[in-house]
Design a binder for these strands. Structure first.
Lengths: 346, 346
DNA sequence: CTGAAAGCGCTTACAG
DNA sequence: CTGAAAGCGCTTACAG
């Protein structure tokens, strides 16, 4: 039915092995023969059967993408789609297919991953999250299955190729930026320190404060379960913050809402900066200053290094740092005199 | 290296054909033999080689997901990830793999799709968008490749299995809802009528107004390129709208910003309702009343009917309507007396 | 530079 | 109910 290597061989008057070598552009075949065979391939719209290729050469040309447990909340974070878009871009360039793996529990995820590797469905995996004691990662490691992590791996760090931002530096940079705007009391809100990415950003934040001789007080750090009451206490401190760093653009909107309910408006009463530079950052009012972490490139590079590893298992383990940059918008501004006055009074 | 059917056959003392029949749970094999073979499969952690199966039975157990042209803006709309999540759920249940197909241009997309089908990489496709004169859809149709559309197909409608909401009814319902809250002048903002989904919603909006004897004036409809100036004119009409319908949650935030800059705050000065019920709807201040179109189910059902079609080509063409429901939140409220007064004055 | 043949790991008529 | 054999469409030593 479909066009096969035999049809081409017959029409080009060569053996199937020759056609196969032309497919692979083997240097052993003369240019004249190649041209003749290619003409026939084009004429018939031939495309090598994928399953047959995989079976014969034991490569699937396919990578698995492991999503975190499918909690709707996390899933709707555009981070994942954007990183998949980056992966997709590279995969398409290299003619690889992607298989997305999701599951409700760790056990289910592990089962699916085992099935896929044993059935030879994929050559390797990209893990879109990072957590400690992950049975899936243990499995990859023990079975020597190629995998790449987006973010900082919690296990086998030095043996694992991963793509990440310098989150420590990003936290430091954005804090520095606020300090240069004249802010002295800067709070960090929405710090989910159980996740490495946030732990690192907070570490950078602390260091920037210390470098500038400012005091890094734990009461200025609220974790991601912060409530309006927490914010209220924060803003009733003798030295209330005049700038806030929030861990993720997705938290900026609810945060802004709480602030406005407490009577603080952006950016006059308080500057706000965030991370990730999702599209929502531009849509907020005022538009949100945010650290662009180039999610697309995180995905692209993760796919690139995974595929390199698949094609050449001797490829070195790599740690790739994707640069970030602060995108300045109206939610942050120089500390105003008014703030000083208020502080003076309180 | 990996466990094959031969290993199992040898250990269970049967022919490989018998093992194959056990894999398929063929009724021809005695339960005793099945049990013996299965024990060995479990003991060795056997999983049938996927490429070999595909090659032998010409099924890939894999579906392609076609994304619209990868404009970042569209891509970051959580709609796509959420529908992929629905597809993923069903695919995993049925042990199918998904391959996401993206491209920058229609030609590139068509090339990739052709490659994938000729190479037998997938059994069928889900198209996540719908537009007129789509070469990709033409190709599927002409080559008789199974495909399913999320949304309303623009071509071959009656021959195409698709999964959609009743967008006409949704538009009508939400308008009706506002009418019941006492609103008489209701505008529709962000109507991208080049897309069927929005055309239908606007049609429902018009009909609801007419059914209630209210006037459906075109000046109350702004397309998706609306500016603050357009809104300004709208609100300076003799009978200014007291309620707004916006085409997509993603537009609600910029819309709200413009409104507040014009001096109108939600929901006192104006009620606002929207479509899709993305997570952002809850995060807005005030939280946004939105029509939940159950995106997850759109994806799930699209995958379900595609796979049914793949497994049994005689399966009928189906049009599946996923129910919607209005999720009421604080952005909409009964028209206040104040509005009436204002109208009286102007 | 090219071809004949074996093999990848399954499935499926066919025979018994 | 089970097995021996051919075949799916490729790749790759081996031989020339």
């Amino acid at each position: 039915m479909a066009v096969t290597i035999k049809d081409i061989a017959k029409r080009a008057n060569v053996a199937t092995s020759t056609v196969s070598r032309v497919i692979q552009d083997s240097p052993k075949i003369s240019e004249a023969t190649k041209a003749r065979v290619r003409k026939e391939m084009k004429a018939l719209g031939y495309e090598p059967n994928f399953s047959a290729q995989s079976l014969a050469n034991k490569k699937t040309q396919s990578i698995g993408i492991i999503m975190p447990d499918a909690e709707v909340a996390i899933f709707q974070n555009p981070f994942f789609l954007e990183s998949i878009r980056g992966i997709s871009e590279l995969a398409n360039e290299k003619n690889f297919t992607m298989a997305i793996v999701t599951a409700r529990t760790d056990e289910e995820l592990l089962d699916r991953v085992k099935m896929m590797t044993r059935a030879n469905r994929v050559d390797g995996f990209i893990v879109l999250y990072s957590k400690s004691e992950d049975p899936v990662v243990d499995y990859f490691h023990n079975e020597k299955i190629p995998y790449t992590v987006i973010g900082k791996p919690q296990q086998y760090v030095n043996e694992t190729t991963h793509v990440d931002n310098d989150n420590f530096q990003a936290g430091k940079d954005v804090t520095q930026y606020l300090i240069e705007l004249g802010h002295e009391y800067i709070a960090y809100v929405g710090a989910d320190v159980s996740r490495t990415v946030h732990k690192e950003r907070v570490r950078g934040y602390r260091e920037a404060l210390q470098d500038s001789g400012l005091f890094a007080d734990e009461t200025y750090i609220l974790d991601s379960s912060f409530t309006k009451a927490d914010l209220d206490s924060l803003f009733k401190l003798p030295n209330r913050p005049t700038a806030l760093i929030v861990g993720d653009d997705m938290h900026a909107l609810p945060l802004q809402t709480m602030l406005s309910q407490l009577g603080f408006s952006l950016p006059e009463a308080c500057s706000l900066v965030s991370f990730n530079n999702l599209r929502i950052a531009e849509m907020l009012n005022p538009p949100l200053t945010s650290v662009d972490i180039d999610i697309f490139t995180l995905g692209y590079q993760a796919a690139k290094s995974l595929i390199e590893k698949i094609l050449d298992p001797k490829e070195m383990t790599k740690h790739i740092i994707v640069p970030h940059r602060i995108v300045e918008r109206a939610s942050s501004q120089r500390r105003t005199m008014e703030d000083t006055t208020v502080e003076g009074i309180s």
